[in-house]
Design a protein around this nucleic acid. Sequence first.
DNA 1: ACAGATTTCCTAGCAGTGCTAGAATCAGCG
DNA 2: CGCTGATTCTAGCACTGCTAGGAAATCTGT
Lengths: 193, 193
Amino acid sequence: MATGTRRERERAQREELIVRAARELAEAEGWEAVTTRRLAAEIEYSQPVLYSHFKGKDAIMTAVAAEGFGELAKEVRAARTAATGASEALAAVAAAYTDFARKRPALYDAMFTHTVEVQFASEDGPAYLREGFGELLAAVEPLAGDDDPGVLTETFWASLHGLAMLERSGRLPAAWHDERLGLLIGRFAVGKG
Amino acid sequence: MATGTRRERERAQREELIVRAARELAEAEGWEAVTTRRLAAEIEYSQPVLYSHFKGKDAIMTAVAAEGFGELAKEVRAARTAATGASEALAAVAAAYTDFARKRPALYDAMFTHTVEVQFASEDGPAYLREGFGELLAAVEPLAGDDDPGVLTETFWASLHGLAMLERSGRLPAAWHDERLGLLIGRFAVGKG
DNA sequence: ACAGATTTCCTAGCAGTGCTAGAATCAGCG
DNA sequence: CGCTGATTCTAGCACTGCTAGGAAATCTGT
């Protein structure tokens, strides 16, 4: 790293500072506290500086979301590789995923609730998105049997996402989280493998 | 109906007008178009009139969400009672649920994405929420086997919700919707019943 | 080291938001 | 009709994301 002129390096450094400040502010006080004025004050620059790096506030949130996807993929991967059997790996992955959503609500919000512009799914999504999906796929595939592993992974992912969202909003009491996860794993790890 | 004085009846009528206007505007142009000024212009009153009926914009969205929960429950019920077997009922319910979310995105947003204040889950939620959950429960229970029907229903609901959200945001291509639903039903309707 | 060109940065402001105080208007009643 | 009280509107506040234009700092060539 450290390519380009000194100014270019300083710019890149400040861009990271913006993303880090936005993330920390969101995690500390929620995204509603992340205003451009507040964020500018936090990095000790004026508002227009933000716009010299990002097209708008959404772009900053997207950058935070990208960080989040990378970390989520890493945690899911760690959980998967640490587990032994196929079912155990699926359970570990599911627990890691929902834990991530629960412990980093602001980050998860940036990834799924707020930023809509990120298009991925099929083949042409950003790398960090394919990475996360690939981790889930690696855990689901051994248990897919005759079913399409990709579509099954999408379905499993949707279940995890739904659980995370409903529990986070308080619509499902968090107390029964483990039971729900257990039932879900039971349904997705039946028979095969 | 038609209780109280004439003025009270007119007030109630105007309150319904507000909710209807907010909903129609949201469904036509999205919730970002529903501003208090725009909504006031739509009902041909000034902004403070809105606040004489509702505590704030969130309260109006909550009222719209309440309507949505009622209609969702009705559609799920219709799908469930029209189906014959237990697995078929579950599939019909799942299709009805995701269809609702797809065809009424603004309404579904009001119900789940925006309004956070609605607490329900366990026992003390509003009636219209328990109604919808009850419909899902009625479809899931026959297939629960030894598992807790309530918790299993919550899990199934979360899966449907996750599918609806990810497909709506374009993160999962809508083209494979039916396949995902099929896989989900297959996992939740195994063996038992 | 200094003048000029260039890039970087900030001040000030715009149009819009949700929401509200106080003035104006309207309804009901003696 | 005139008064009282409820109802409604005008005007404004504090805030948002975002941006034009001038000020300030930096780099360049002599």
